[in-house]
Nucleic acid binder design. Sequence first.
DNA 1: CATCTGGTTTACGTATACGTAAACCGTGCC
DNA 2: GGCACGGTTTACGTATACGTAAACCAGATG
Lengths: 156, 156
Amino acid sequence: MAVASKTTARTDAARAFVDAHGHAEAPDFFSISDLSEEFAITHRAIRFYEAKGLLSPRRLNGARIYSRRDRARLHIIVRAKSLGYSLEETKDYLDLYGRQGEGRIKQLEVSVHKSAEMIAELEAKKRQIDEKIEELRLINRVCRQKIAQKRAKNTD
Amino acid sequence: MAVASKTTARTDAARAFVDAHGHAEAPDFFSISDLSEEFAITHRAIRFYEAKGLLSPRRLNGARIYSRRDRARLHIIVRAKSLGYSLEETKDYLDLYGRQGEGRIKQLEVSVHKSAEMIAELEAKKRQIDEKIEELRLINRVCRQKIAQKRAKNTD
DNA sequence: CATCTGGTTTACGTATACGTAAACCGTGCC
DNA sequence: GGCACGGTTTACGTATACGTAAACCAGATG
């Protein structure tokens, strides 16, 4: 049987392509398996994001080839998800991220405005997290006090 | 027709109860409408949280009466949701929050551990937010630079 | 008494975000 | 040649978190 090489195997042409570019330490292209491993998500999820218009990797013989930029976008998607953003919201974000500095003045001004808005929203989220952390610190403290009390009185 | 009083109307007995306790500034009890308004969510959502075991208000004549503690729990639910936590996860959190300092030493130690874990997780989330904020600041900066350049060259 | 208001339950529908299974294709290795 | 391997599409299923509609009840009001 074919002994799969240690490195992730790929559809042949795709593999050739990926290997051709990028030298060991800093690859320029990635397979779907590379990315699904790196970000601990399934192939299915990655294809789903593409179907929803959040990614659009080039194809080679049908197989998907992801550039560094695609990978960066996926990274953003994964992070945004863990922060509770929907794919729809993340898509808006990526639109901003994608056209970094392109377009006419009007568009650029919109981008400046939107990015400022998003920053404000994230700051608010940070404050909410701080509130939760405070609650948890209180719980932590109270529990430890109770433990100390019980230990002292030996009331188990 | 019945002119609804300015304050939220309630099923009668419930209203009497709610009004009996708490004096204007600091009510002790709340109707489902009070809370749905305060947190900008629907009655349906609140009942749903109850069905999932995250709330358990007392009843009066069938109508739900929420205590300050119930309200605090709902507040936590709403915040957790906006931070991307599922109701299941939030339920675990509320279990911790509910038994603040009760139980035997073993349980208390578990609580200490879990709260510490949750704090660590939230700190990680904060770092992710900081990363996103950094990205956005960059976008913001780049866009403003481009605007300045275009303005200077007057190339629209 | 009829209606209105605010509450209740039950049931079915819907959007999001995938999971899972089936069936296919192209290349490399024995 | 054949099979394993990694990839592909298509289709249907599932979990979460509610929305919506229908039908009911209990007091308050005119």
